[in-house]
Amino acid sequence: MRAERKLAAVNLGKLGKTLSKLKGNGVIQNHLAKLMQRTKATLFSPFKLMILVGISYVILGPIISIISHSFFSPSDLYNPSVFLIPLNPTLENYRLAFMRLGYWDTLLKSLIYIAKTTILQVLITSMAGYGFARFNFPLKKLLFGCVVVTIILPSYTIMLPLYQHFRSWDVLWLFKIFKGEALNLLQSTKPTYLLTLFGAGLRSGLYIYIFRQFFRGLPKEIEEAALIDGAGTWHTYFRIMLVNAIPAVLTVSVFSLVWQYNDMFYSGLFSIPADQNIAFRLSTIAATIRFVDEIRDPLVVQLYVYAGVVLVLLPILLLYLFLQKYFMEGLERSGIVG
C-alpha cells in the first residue's frame, strides 16, 4: 500500500517537473509542491524508522533479555538451542528472589522512605527556587552561583566529611554536654532526611534550578492579584504558586522518586538499613543466595538476580508508565530550559 503510494508519488513528482516547465498555473504548482514534500517525507521515513527501531532495541534489548532469563530454569541455561524463550519456564527464580528480598515488607518500607524524602525534597527545593526566582536580596547572584556549584560538584568529593559528620552528629555540642557523647546517625535513614531537609539531598541543586526556571516563567500578575486580594506571602506560595507549578512539581517528583529509589551511593555511605532500601538489598541478593541457599554456580545465581531485578524494577516501571504522559508534559513545560 505504502510502496504503491510512494511509487505514485515519485511518478507524479517527475510529471510535476515537466509540468512546471510548461509554467502551469498557481494552483497546480501549489499542488505539486505539496506532492514533492510528501514524496520527500515518505522517502525519508524508512531511514528514520530504522534509526528509531535500532536505538529502541539498544535500550530495550537488555531489559527483554533480563525478563526472559528470569524465567529460565538451570537446564535452559546450559541448552545452547534456547534463545529468549525458555523450554522449561519456571517461577522458582521468582519464589526465591521474593523470599530473599523480603519483597512486600521491603518494598513497602522503601516506598514510605522515598515518598517522605520526595515530599521534603519538593517542599524545600521549590521554596528555594521560588526565593531565587521572585525576590531580590543581597548576594543573590553569589548564592545562586553556589546552587550551580552544588549541581556541578560531585557528592563524592565531600563524602568523607559527611560520613564523619553523621558518625558523630551534634547540634552545637548539646548532646556532648548533656549525654556525654555525640549521636551516631549512621545505619538509619536520618542522614538522608536531614540532608534533604536542608536542601543538600540527592541532586537538590538540580531541582532548585528547575523550580527557579519554572517560577521565573510564571506571570507576575498572578502574585500581584493575590496580594491585592489580601493573601499573605505564604498563602500565595502554597495556594497559588505551588498549584500553578504542578508540571515542575511532577517532574521533580518523578526524578526524585526514581533517583532515590535507585540510589546506592548515599545508602552505602550512611549504611542505611537494607530493609528500607530495596535497590540496596538487591545488591546483596547474589551473595545471600550463594551462601544461604548454597547455590554455587554463579550463572545460576545470576538467574535469581535477574528475577530480583525484574521485581525491583516493576514498581518503578509501573509508576513511570502511569506518570509518563504528565512527566513528558512537565518536562516540556517545566522549563528545565530557559
Binding site: 528555594a128 521560588y130 531565587f132 553556589c146 546552587v147 552544588t150 560538584l153 540532608l195 536542608f198 543538600a200
Partner: peptide
C-alpha cells in the same frame, strides 16, 4: 521574605557543602 524562603538551603549549604 526571600531570605526566609531560601534559608533552609543556605543553612544546608553552609553545614554540608
Amino acid at each position: 521574605t526571600g531570605l526566609i524562603f531560601i534559608a533552609p538551603w543556605v543553612i544546608g549549604f553552609i553545614i554540608y557543602y
